[in-house]
Design a protein around this nucleic acid. Structure first.
Length: 189
DNA sequence: TGGGCGATTCGCT
DNA sequence: GCGAATCGCCCAC
């Protein structure tokens, strides 16, 4: 079994960490799978929640790397991020999609959906499938309920523009596993 | 296959 | 008050 990712893994540039998360395994209370899609957000980036400085919501982003940042999206969904870089840099990786490999029954129950491809193919779906909510904001990523494993081999990675944002739309900071059927949306060829 | 839209909460202006 | 790092449903093509 590949080694667990330590908090030190996240103590690097978000642009280094984000593509390296593709192919890694994310489990939450034993449910989850292989990370196939992420996006990088840095606080010099107008699309980032940390862009305008610290607030109660984004406080975790300004703390040390290797912790979870969870926020509510569109008043309905929860989205899971991993804080990166040195303390205060306020950067994070949004986890957007998984290929489900563990805890399938629990995830299907939470999602109330039979289709495996729709279980974790988007940030809101993923959080619902794993049972992640605001209660899990600010938790260390190297301890339960999180279990993160490094990828065994280096996968083929595609990159492109991020999804669902209105600022800095051109920055190619979305990363995906090439050819995966579990992406939230295909990457433009 | 893809575009339009409503749902629903809350941080920030 | 506005609008958002989304999703699922409905409709047209």
């Amino acid at each position: 079994m590949p080694p667990r990712l330590t908090r030190k893994f996240f103590d690097r540039s978000v642009h280094e960490v984000a593509p390296e998360l593709i192919g890694a395994t994310l489990l939450f209370n034993g449910a989850g799978g292989v990370i196939v899609e992420v996006e990088a957000y840095h606080h010099t980036d107008p699309a980032a929640h940390s862009y305008r400085g610290p607030t109660p919501r984004n406080a975790v982003m300004f703390g040390p790397p290797g912790f979870s940042y969870v926020y509510r999206s569109y008043g309905i969904h929860w989205c899971l991020n991993f804080v990166c870089e040195a303390e205060g840099s306020a950067s994070a990786v949004l986890i957007r999609a998984l290929e489900p490999t563990a805890g399938l029954a629990a995830m299907r129950r939470r999602r109330r959906l039979p289709d495996e491809r729709a279980l974790c193919s988007g940030p809101g779906k993923l959080a619902e499938a794993l049972g992640v909510t605001i209660k899990h904001n600010g938790l260390p990523l190297d301890r339960p309920p999180f279990e993160l494993r490094a990828r065994a081999t280096e996968p083929e990675i595609v990159k492109g523009a991020r999804i669902g944002i209105t600022k800095a739309v051109e920055l190619p900071w979305r990363y995906g596993l090439k050819g995966s059927k579990f992406l939230s949306k295909p990457f433009k060829a």
